[in-house]
């Protein structure tokens, strides 16, 4: 079992291949790994409540153990604030991301 930090900077509207990254996160979790899925930049667009075909909803149904975090600055920059944040997504920041990255053996993957 390994620890993974998957950082998703892209969104499914501009990049059709983001689905692959969400699926990998789910597969890694289902295989018994600890997976943190960190949304940043336009990646946080999937963290807005009410989005159609929510990739975050699908991920959480497929792999409930994946921890989904979203960068607070990226959220605020896009006015995804207050009650607009989708359930199951926790607001986070780069300080917490660095804490996750600065651990030997953690597999950090940017997309």
């Amino acid at each position: 079992m390994a620890d993974y930090v998957l950082i998703e900077s892209r969104d499914p509207f501009e990049y059709s291949d983001t689905g692959y990254f969400y699926e990998v996160a789910a597969d890694l979790s289902k295989a018994g790994n600890n997976v943190t899925f960190f949304l940043v930049q336009n990646g946080v667009l999937t963290a807005r409540k009410g989005i159609s075909n929510s990739a975050v909803d699908k991920l959480q149904k497929a792999a409930p153990n994946v921890k989904v975090l979203a960068d607070e600055f990226s959220l605020r920059e896009r006015a995804i604030i207050g009650g607009k944040l989708a359930s199951g997504v926790a607001s986070s920041d780069v300080d917490e991301l660095v804490d996750l990255l600065a651990v030997s053996g953690v597999k950090a993957i940017w997309h």
Binding site: Q41, V94, D95, D99
Partner: peptide, 20 residues
């Protein structure tokens, strides 16, 4: 050109502030 540069700089800043 991209938010990626800003995020990378923010990560560097956070790491250095933490003594990393």
């Amino acid at each position: 050109e991209s938010g990626t540069t800003t995020t990378a700089l923010r990560i560097m800043d956070a790491a250095l502030r933490k003594g990393i």
